[in-house]
Amino acid sequence: MNTERKVLLIDDDADLVAINEAVFAARGFTVDKAYNGKVGFERARDGKPDAIVLDVMMSTNSEGFDLARRLRGDDATRGIPLVMVTSVNSTVPFTYEPDGVFLPVDRFLEKPVPPETLVHEVERILASLPGTGS
């Protein structure tokens, strides 16, 4: 097991972050946390996580989308796998292409996501990457 794995959890629900943190930590992950897009981007750039779990709706309905695009547009964060969790309802018209541009995230999961499922998805993505997980 790779004990160097680090995951960044970005969600404005502190309780949800705390729960996921516990499960990721139990699976041997180092966990970093952010409660908004701005801090999330800084942690992603400076902390070099192996994967990011990102909520779509934070202070605005598209904060998660905006952050995802920003992460994909930055050389320092472009290669980090992104798992996006969404609360799909009519106030957040869910779309893979919020402005007609395909959003390159690695996985979409609909809330509520059982923490074990989330960890499992992140582990699967990391395992499939060439040159990691050895």
Binding site: L16, A26, N89, P112
Partner: peptide, 28 residues
């Protein structure tokens, strides 16, 4: 209605996950 549903769903999901986590012992 959608907003109410969302407001109900989020805390319920958190409560569910917290209790599930503690009961399952998945995180030790």
């Amino acid at each position: 209605v959608s907003m109410v549903a969302h407001e109900l769903k989020s805390p319920l999901a958190t409560i569910e996950s917290s209790l599930g986590l503690i009961l399952s012992g998945a995180a030790g």
